[in-house]
Structures are given as structure tokens and as C-alpha cells.
Write a protein that binds this DNA or RNA. Structure first.
Lengths: 192, 192
DNA sequence: TGCATTTAATAACAAATGTTATCGTCCACG
DNA sequence: CGTGGACGATAACATTTGTTATTAAATGCA
């Protein structure tokens, strides 16, 4: 499971054993709530198998912010870092196998990583990379039409199209399910 | 000018003199291009006085991504960090007084800062804070209507409303100038 | 297997937003 | 100062997107 981390960071065996022992495995069905809106995030998750959705409730309507699949880490970032109530909820979409670490363990690991310049650099890169992702995702909202965003999604993130129910995708694209359905049928016509 | 940085990071006098000497002051008129689209970003800017706009060209139309005012640092972040061609351009909107630092000097300063745990922590906080800002800004696009976004902008960022030409604000909100104008007049009616 | 529930497509209509064009105002700059 | 260009408001019309309702298909589960 953690191979990529291990390879990426090249820990000593001791450190590796210490760190990996802090992760706990959990097997959960679909629609399991991992974090409620308003709750303070105490855990970070790692997806071994399955699919996780991050979203929020906007006076009654359920909106999706992000999806996560195998080998990604999930948390309500701001809540986790600052220990404030989360604006977002986290739930599984598919039956999933997850690993979680507690906030205090993450803090310990990060503190140690940060003492080693090369690893600190890698960690910073990860943080920046996520920032860049948000920027790009945001940019697509001011420059692309919903239809273009959908086409991009099909191209860049086919996982989402294949595995996520369409009504979640719709709010992720900032549109209604009806409109997404229209977009799809219009695209299908174009291809014929 | 750098008071907030100095207070924030509490450098020794020596360090302070070293760091601040790496910043160069420049006085420029409005509509000065600080970074062209496609160019690799070599400088980070600090706004002493004036207003800076970050945007990009979307097949012919000029779109705005962000605005920066006094006491903020501006760069095409991804280009600056990775030394890749920038997707974004940077230009002044008002006649401005800016300070700039070269990439290599920033790298030196950051490397030194990172050796000191407390400062490293502060630096990370800054990076995360910007990430959170992008997240929030993005969220407003999936949960709010253009009209609500405008109202929020008036409330949270009156600077932008007061100092930035309206057609820049429109693309920043993801709408056309005509639509923004309509929103304003509708809001004005509501108040009467 | 069968049934309840979830999910997706579609139609008809309403509202929001974009497009193009025109006009008046303002103000930066020669 | 005077004036050309930038800026903003508005109208008329086109297009996109949302809303509500209905139906069919797919799916999970007892």
C-alpha cells in the first residue's frame, strides 16, 4: 500500500516501521461518513481501495467539492491543519478499504520529515502541487463552459466518469443533473 | 514597507539587512507588464503602493484571475516555483511602487528560513493559507450565483470594487460586463 | 428472484446569462 | 484645455442553464 511513499521518501527501516505502525486499516461499506460537516477533523485517510467524496451542504442541496480514488490522501485540509470545525463532509461512495492516521501522529511524522532537507522539499512540493491543482480547477471555471469542463473531465479524469454517480459529477462541475444529461446527449449527437 | 515581515519572522539585524538588500524598488505606471504569458517567472513582487492584476488570455478574451493590493506578494506561483512558462500574465492596474526579488534570492531566503523550525512553520502556514484561499474562492463558484459572489466581494473585498475597472471584475466573477452591470442595477433597485 | 430505491433521460417551461449594438460620461494625456 | 479612447449603462434578442415533473432503466438488497 505505502510503496509509493516509501520509495518517495526513502525512510530507514526503523523509521518506516515506526511511521507505518501509526496507520490503521479500516474496511467500510459505501456511504460511510468519515467526517461530518461541523466536526473537527482528527484523521487523515489514505485510500487503498474504493472512492471517497468530499462535499458540503448548501442550504439543503448536497454539493460535491472533490473525489478521491486509490492511492490518494484525503482530509478536510483546513479543519485538519487548524483544528477548526470542517465546512466539508467526507464520505465513501464505494465500499472501501482505507488507512487512517491521527492528527497527532501526522504532526510527529511531518515534524521529523521537516528536519531532513530533501524530505522537507518533497513535502513542500506535495503541498504546492495541491495548491496548483486547486488553481487549475478554479481557472477552468472562469474560462470553460460546463460542456468543456465535462469534456476535460472525460479526458483527464475518466475514473470519475466511470465510477461516480452522475448527480455527484454534476455538482462537481457546477451544474444540475439535468444540464449534465443534456450535455452528454448533445455530445453523443455530435459524434454520430 | 517590510515591517510585517520583519515582525512576523523576527530576523536578527544581520539577517534582516542581508534579506532586505535583495529587494529592489521600482516605480511603474499603470498597465505595466510585469510578466508575460509564456515567459518563465524570475521575480516575485511585493506591492508597496498600487494594484496588480493577474490574468490570462483565453483565445482572444482577457480574463482576470486575481487582484493584489498594498502589502501583498505577487508571482505566477507555479511558473516561479517550477521555472516553467507561465500560463498567466501579471500587470499593474494603477501607477505602482513595487519591490522585487529574484528567484535565486528567494530560494536562498526560503532555504535559510526553513532551517529554523519556528520560521519554517510560519512559512508553511503562509503557503497553506493561500491554498485555503483558493479553495474558498473556488467553492463560491459552485455554491453561489454570480449576484451572490458580487455581494460577497463588496463585503469582503471592497478594495476591488473601488479601485478596479468593472470589466476586470466581471471576468474575475466569471461573468460578462453586461451581466455585472445588470446585477448592480438590480441590487440598487432592491435597496430603494 | 423480486422489489424498493437509486439513478439517469427527457420534455416543457421559466429564469439567468451571453451577444451585439448604441449611447453618454469621464478622464488621461497631448 | 480639448479630445480620443476607455469605461459603464442599457436595450433587444439569442442562447444557455435551471426547475419541475414524468418515465424508464439499473442497482442493491432482503
Amino acid at each position: 500500500m505505502f510503496e509509493q511513499f516509501r520509495n518517495n521518501f526513502r525512510f530507514s527501516d526503523d523509521k518506516w516501521n515506526d511511521y507505518s505502525s501509526r496507520f490503521k486499516r479500516m474496511v467500510v461499506p459505501a456511504k460511510t461518513i468519515l467526517l461530518k460537516e461541523g466536526e473537527v477533523s482528527k484523521k487523515m485517510f489514505l485510500v487503498e481501495k474504493g472512492c471517497v467524496r468530499v462535499g458540503f451542504n448548501n442550504n439543503g442541496t448536497d454539493l460535491t467539492f472533490q473525489f478521491f480514488f486509490e492511492n490518494s490522501t484525503v482530509a478536510s485540509l483546513e479543519s485538519f491543519k487548524k483544528q477548526l470545525p470542517s465546512q466539508l463532509f467526507i464520505e465513501t461512495i464505494e465500499p472501501s478499504v482505507l488507512w487512517y492516521v491521527n492528527k497527532k501522529d501526522v504532526d510527529i511524522i511531518i515534524a521529523e520529515i521537516n528536519e531532513i532537507p530533501v524530505m522537507r522539499e518533497k513535502f513542500l512540493d506535495v503541498v504546492f502541487e495541491r495548491t496548483f491543482d486547486y488553481m487549475k480547477h478554479f481557472l477552468s471555471f472562469i474560462k470553460d463552459t460546463p460542456s468543456q469542463r465535462y469534456v476535460n473531465l472525460v479526458k483527464d479524469n475518466p475514473q470519475i466518469i466511470k465510477r461516480v454517480p452522475q448527480h455527484y459529477i454534476a455538482s462537481y462541475l457546477g451544474i444540475t443533473t439535468v444540464h449534465l444529461s443534456r450535455i452528454k446527449s448533445k455530445l453523443a449527437k455530435g459524434k454520430r
